[in-house]
Amino acid sequence: MEQLARLGRIGISSLERLGRGHLLLAHMFSGVTALIMRPTLLIAQIHSVGVFSMLIITISGLFVGMVLGLQGYYILSQFGAEETLGVMVAASLVRELGPVVTALLFAGRAGSALTAEIGLMKATEQLSGLEMMAVDPIKRILTPRFMAGLISMPLLAALFSAIGVIGGHFVGVGLLGVDEGAYWSQMQSKIDLHEDIYNGVIKSIVFGFVCTWIALFQGHDCIPTSEGVSRATTRTVVHSALAILCLDFVLTALMFGE
């Protein structure tokens, strides 16, 4: 009996959390119109969410592209198909690695920072303070961060893919001697704008949405103690990573399965 009650408690509390998360999302969306009137708030958040993530994204993108160039070359040269290296590098970056790795890095770099920031604001009663001054803390604090994440993520993913393609070019063409014309022309003939690039952008928008939502919800919903904030930050990274990888499977099945 006791076990059954515990199971029920877990079920109810997770459903409650899910409900609170959606209420928070709806509340955040209701603040979008007010945000348009004050774009400086948004710019400040894009600065902390997007600009500060740029360095890690570009460096990771460069090295991921270079590794793809190396690995792809060794495998493709066994079939005498080194010329298709460009296709392999670009397709794997644009379709999968670009959105997914960017989102994972984004969750680690920006998501955890957002959770810790919001959680600490809650622990130090800054959010309650805002409410006392009749300022809606969700509209004032959370909405700009949410929109900033939503805007930054596709741009970061595009940056990652583009730098990765250049990194693959550097290793494949520069070091391993793949023909430069073949690298680009094969890529251009096989990579489709709609099939590959648009779908990659859609993926990254979805991941940006989910990552930022999880980060903000965990921050807003945390227990306002130092331990609670630290737990919420951990949960942000874990939940974001799981959500990204599961959603990636679903999206890939929907987009590329015929």
């Binding site: 600065h47 741009l155 583009a162």
Partner: peptide
């Protein structure tokens, strides 16, 4: 940052696809 992102998207659209 935003310009770099859009340039990257443009690069993907024009050069890669």
């Amino acid at each position: 940052f935003m310009a770099a992102g859009f340039v990257a998207l443009f690069f993907l659209a024009m050069q890669v696809s």
